[in-house]
Design a protein around this nucleic acid. Structure first.
Lengths: 204, 204
DNA sequence: CGCGCAAGTGGCACTTGGTGTCAACTTTGG
DNA sequence: CCAAAGTTGACACCAAGTGCCACTTGCGCG
């Protein structure tokens, strides 16, 4: 996958340890749940001190949330890559393609599903997840603002619309994701399409 | 305001203590910030033991979030009260009227603003707040589903649209709120109107 | 090659949020 | 007035983090 042979030994071992910590922790979380798994038990299973654990992850939560930070960057890149003259709603829909494809990839999907179940089972993790989503939306809203200006429709700083449309897109995505989890015969891309197009059919 | 003379002495003193704890804590939070204020310092200032504090609030977070739970119930009541034949988007907009009016009330607004600043200054509180919002949306989505069925437009259980439209409305509200905080010459109701009507003017 | 520095590590004490327990006390209902 | 039920403080305890310090290890440099 990603080439890291050019990194120093220090950096490589650091990443390896980090990855293994995630691995070990995830296994324990699945076995006994997130809250019930202490940092001590993780460090014991991984063979390093608690003190060092907190040098790899700012918090126990952070160990789980790391992946979602990457997703945020991926979304930003995805939206920025869309052509400037594309309608905003379409661009937002296409922005989700990469992350949907990633979760559909059979090599990641099992692990991802596991993590997702862990997150939704723990209120603390869920809250942290929502916080990341909120941050992503805020970042994406400024990109939308730029796009609108580029397209000759400048938005005043006091215009809440860019944040609103991004939030609406995320609401569709979230609704689709929840439905995909509850009914596993439904395909996520179809549900996203459905949510994002049906939104405009509601009476006003 | 609310009559509580019919409650037992126990219940009345309980509420009084609870209210004073919120009061004392809020003062300390403003002075030194949320994280920097320990539960010990709150209990010391209020004159009761730490153990008792946790009999009044499940957590330090809970002390702050209590108000928002009430807001959730208010929103549910507000939406349920809207006529069944009213367009969904309009009903969602009107649902917000009560809570907007409450925050605009000069007797509450100062304290509310203070709390809001405390919440947005603390990542932990912010995450907890987002979690409540998420829960509210989930509850409201089922109400929307019922409304749609009542109006002769039954939605399949696999249709993500009700959650999506509620999420979109909340996104508008959130965008408006953020804008109202950043530019205090803008009125919240106007911003909500703007966000909720401009949403449909985006290209697709 | 080897030297010195920066980075990484473990151990330990400490703080803070939160829980379990229990004995003493207060409210309430009969 | 009395017994049951609820409330309280004190104390011990647990888990997540942090600060500190001595020690080791990878890395650049002469």
């Amino acid at each position: 996958m990603s080439e890291d042979s050019h990194l120093s030994l220090r950096e490589r071992t650091r990443r390896a340890v980090q990855a293994e910590l995630v691995d070990v922790a995830q296994r324990l979380f699945v076995e006994q749940g997130y809250e019930a798994t202490t940092v001590d038990s993780i460090t014991e299973a991984a063979g390093l001190s608690k003190r060092s654990f907190f040098r790899y992850f700012a918090s126990k939560e952070d160990l789980v949330m790391g992946k979602y930070d990457l997703m945020g960057e991926q979304l930003q890149a995805g939206l920025t890559a869309r052509p400037a003259d594309e309608p905003v709603w379409t661009a937002l829909r296409r922005m989700f393609d990469d992350v949907i494809a990633y979760t559909a990839d059979t090599s990641n999907s099992a692990r991802m599903d596991e993590m997702e179940r862990i997150v939704s089972a723990s209120p603390a993790l869920n809250a942290a997840y929502l916080q990341r989503l909120d941050q992503m939306q805020s970042d994406l809203a400024t990109i939308v603002r730029d796009r609108e200006e580029q397209a000759g429709r400048p938005r005043a700083a006091t215009d809440p619309s860019p944040e609103a449309i991004v939030g609406a897109a995320f609401a569709c995505m979230a609704a689709a994701r929840r439905t995909a989890i509850r009914f596993d015969d439904q395909s996520l891309p179809d549900l996203v399409d459905r949510a994002m197009s049906d939104l405009w059919t509601f009476d006003r």
